[in-house]
Write a protein that binds this DNA or RNA. Structure first.
Lengths: 330, 330
DNA sequence: CGGGGATGGTGAATCGATTCATCGTGTTTG
DNA sequence: CAAACACGATGAATCGATTCACCATCCCCG
């Protein structure tokens, strides 16, 4: 019994036509109880699994969704994926998860693959050039949704990163900081631009001059090692040292804190740190990390929901969680 | 141009037969330079993407591999997935990643889906009842490889967890601990059994009585919250408190350390902690965490390699990294 | 009792890429 | 020069599930 059984085999064994077997599979209510059980027994006996390729070839519809995130190693994105999975499972769909690693060629490769697979749709955390690549898919009739991003020209679900940046920086200003280093991602990332805008708004609202208060360093790669290196350069540049760092995410903040400790600087007294994402270990770090929390699962859920139903979702609101890394009283 | 172009369309435009188009796709060396470029131009012009369903239906072979890990939220498993991806990409294959969440029904669902997809093979981090479910696949001609597990009856790649358990406990004994709590997973997990065996070996080798030194608590779910709760119960049980905890993984260790701090206990003086996996944040925690490091990427790479080529790989050797959570001098 | 429905079931046609037996053309060889 | 051969290209058959026009019963009711 190494051979895969087909509908034909099932039909033969059950003594019905292939059309009936297909009906049992797809429209069970249109088949009498008796024939249905007969067919189901035959399927069980033959260990029948319907062939998804043939099914999709003829029916034209697929039940898989392609997902491309920036970096699967970052728990933020796996939480996002879990939210997507939750929503898709409800409609009996599955996801193919892949990681672009911020590399357009990788992204292109996966998009091509998704197109060949004929996926039901694609969910992407976009980089700068993603939109044009999605045009190809659109022409093939494959819909896509941008995640953690807002774009009036595309279906998208996002978080209000302007608000997130504003909350983080307003908090630091409130604690008296007047020279703040923003360790950001590339300016190509919308998240970077929005958070910076929020940061500027906070400074302006406090009656201060953004150009004097904020110093921005753009990291090409958001790893803790790159972040540590960038901090080294910033501190050794000879310019007046900042008193606080606003990090693009918690992994970046990890690198920052590592370097501060290496230099024997106290957190938050010598330098305050605020991260972003509020990953699960943020509260357990050597100095518990203040961080901007995002509703990661809901974001993924909403993205999948938008793809399947077309139902738009409003911007999600992030929330600053203050811990000891930015507050000496904690 | 919302329609997908098919080989027929390409053949028409290029003025050749469908067979020739297929040859360009699959046996380019058997086609003259001239016709090949003609066909390739036509493909580009029509934005042609071959239909993977039709391809697979006829050719019978798939280029996707199904992967089921225990918990995608745990960075250990995403690193494993990255290793798999690296190996698969080299042979132009892709992976479908899913998470069993320790739930046999979820696992079963994904395996059924993989069978329907006709995947090239399946990679699984197994739970107790996984093996029998894989029998179904084997009967369908779909090979599978167990990851982070050794099983003479199945293809598998693993880490020497006996050694890992031995190293961790030998270290704790060496530091003078004589009552050690092992916060383990279920005994159904091979990892649990092997690490326990290693732990017992270490105790015996030190000339002590395992039953007196080791206390084992089996956690059904390996989350930091469940771990914290289990520790509460262990400490409040009235039995003599342990002086050290060996945690099944770093996430569990996180919960342990959280509870110890909540009680104002000092790490490692009141209680030492050793984790497992050496996740990237282990060194940055409030008390840097000693942990048994595993070659996660290599493990995934080897699993995918075994599936594709049949090449077996020897057990990987884990390595204890000692940090302050188990050593007062650090 | 016969016609109009409703219900359950049938099976040939179909989706698109691949395969392979076959054919035409040009080149080599005895 | 004819036979043998290599090389490119051809196109009908094929994979397995779904679809849909059509058929066979059976029931109800005027």
């Amino acid at each position: 019994m190494t051979q895969r059984a087909s509908v034909k085999d099932v039909a033969l064994l059950a003594g019905v036509s292939v059309g009936t077997v297909s009906n049992v599979l797809n429209r069970p209510e249109s088949v009498t109880e008796k024939t249905r059980t007969k067919v189901e027994q035959a399927m069980a006996e033959l260990n029948f699994h319907r062939n998804a390729s043939a099914r999709q070839l003829r029916a034209g519809v697929s039940r898989t969704v392609g997902v491309i995130v920036m970096d699967v190693s970052n728990p933020f994105y796996t939480e996002l994926a879990r939210g997507i999975e939750d929503r898709l499972a409800a409609d009996d769909h599955t996801l193919i998860l892949s990681s672009s690693d911020d590399d357009p060629r990788r992204e292109q490769r996966f998009l091509r693959l998704f197109a060949e697979q004929g996926v039901r749709g694609v969910l992407v955390t976009p980089m700068a050039s993603t939109a044009e690549r999605l045009g190809d898919l659109r022409r093939l009739g494959i819909p896509s949704v941008l995640m953690d991003s807002t774009d009036p020209a595309h279906a998208s679900v996002g978080v209000d990163h302007v608000s997130g940046g504003r909350q983080a920086v307003a908090h630091l200003l409130d604690r008296g900081h007047r020279r703040i280093l923003f360790l950001a991602g590339t300016t190509e990332l919308q998240q970077t631009r929005h958070r910076l805008r929020g940061a500027v708004e906070a400074v302006t609202a406090a009656g201060l001059e953004p150009g004097e208060v904020l110093k921005v360093v753009n990291l090409a790669v958001l790893t803790s090692n790159d972040a540590q290196q960038a901090l080294v350069e910033a501190l050794d540049s000879g310019e007046p040292a900042p008193t606080a760092v606003f990090a693009m995410n918690d992994v970046v903040a990890l690198g920052v804190m590592r370097e501060l400790r290496r230099r024997g600087l106290s957190i938050p007294h010598d330098m305050a740190v605020v991260g972003y994402d509020d990953l699960y270990f943020a509260a357990e770090l050597m100095t518990p990390l203040s961080s901007v929390r995002q509703p990661m699962r809901q974001l993924g859920w909403a993205a999948a929901d938008l793809l399947l139903t077309g139902q738009a979702h409003p911007l999600f609101e992030p929330e600053l969680i203050v811990r000891a890394s930015s507050d000496g009283n904690l």
